[in-house]
Design a protein around this nucleic acid. Structure first.
Lengths: 187, 187
DNA sequence: GCTTTCATTTGACCTATGTCAAAAAGTGAT
DNA sequence: ATCACTTTTTGACATAGGTCAAATGAAAGC
């Protein structure tokens, strides 16, 4: 899905508006394992993934990585809270593959939000969608067995689950790598 | 906190705008245990809690209630996804005390969103805030012990935790009532 | 094709928390 | 005050999933 299609799927922008909006994005290519933002930094850009994939993660006190979210093709990747409030991020943002991204800065988004009422609507709808997804993951994590969580993951991110290291998925699902490995082999 | 103060704290509405916006809300009083919405219904209104408190919950297949969120004084209570997308709600919404609420319908919100660019901004910021809170709960639930989750709850909802039945809190925290009871008594 | 390094699997054991059941403590109505 | 009902506490026991450690497998450089 292209960025243009993505925008249209939420709000009926005119072609003129779309052109103006799209001009504010910069196409960038990043290599696998590139860190787009680190913990503690303010997230200055938000990225639309045209090709590739990414994840957000944080470090526990013991230093272990915990994957917080996966981002597939055709979605926006960000530390949403950090970006929209321009506050320090709790998360790292990492490319999990060589990726093609469309980046836009906070300043430019602000300008677009001020200029186009529809842009506000777009971001609002996007936020509500993310909220629903995070809430749904929370419900899955909270009261399901390791096995059920794994199945949930496969339905939510069917393309991602077999493309990234086991440990990333395990921490995303709130279980150890060993447990996930055992579940997979008794599938 | 009044609704007016709440609105101003997010966006600098003019007094005129505020008056217009506030006119669209209806003050209602509901008794303890009143259900504002049931699972499967489309959430037609969103409620600002001036006095009282509420929660959202859902039923597991085995019929047990799981508290999904608590709403204290001075916040909006809703099944956000259901309200903003006018889709069936996964959750019940219940008053946990006799409460004074300011209610607004989806139709009226839509009108205000279309009329005031600032209103879109307000809802966007509100959504991002909720997103951050849900994400933070998710992190707490996912990798903390029962004891740590209880402490997290006390910092997040200090006023609520001792005002509602134990079972509501336990399910909110993803543990059994018995476990929560034991934790409390070894505090 | 080896060697080194990193990722996954397997095994043995342990612990936090769940389950089930009963007792105790609150709460409200008559 | 007493009875009926609900909520909380306590106890005994079970188990999913964690921890630690070693073995296997896969990938990358030489």
């Amino acid at each position: 899905m292209t960025l243009e299609d993505f925008l249209i799927s939420y709000v009926s922008f005119s072609q003129e508006e779309l052109n103006d909006i799209l001009e504010n994005f910069t196409k960038i290519e990043v290599a696998k394992n590139h860190l787009l933002i680190k913990e503690g930094q303010v997230c200055k850009n938000i990225y639309f993934i045209e090709e590739g994939m990414g994840r957000s993660y944080y470090l526990k006190k013991d230093g272990k990585e915990v994957t917080q979210w996966f981002f597939g093709e055709g979605v926006f990747m960000s530390s949403a809270d950090s970006f929209f409030k321009q506050s320090p991020s709790y998360y790292y943002l990492e490319a999990l593959d060589d990726s093609v991204l469309y980046s836009i800065s906070y300043g430019k988004i602000e300008t677009l939000l001020a200029k186009y009422h529809k842009m506000e609507t777009f971001v609002r709808l996007l936020s509500i969608d993310m909220l629903a997804k995070v809430a749904s993951k929370l419900n899955a994590i909270q009261f399901q067995t390791a096995r059920e969580r794994y199945d949930y993951m496969n339905s939510e991110f069917p393309d991602i689950s077999y493309r990234v290291p086991l440990g990333h998925i395990a921490s995303y699902l709130g279980m150890t790598q060993e447990t996930l490995s055992r579940i997979r082999h008794q599938a």
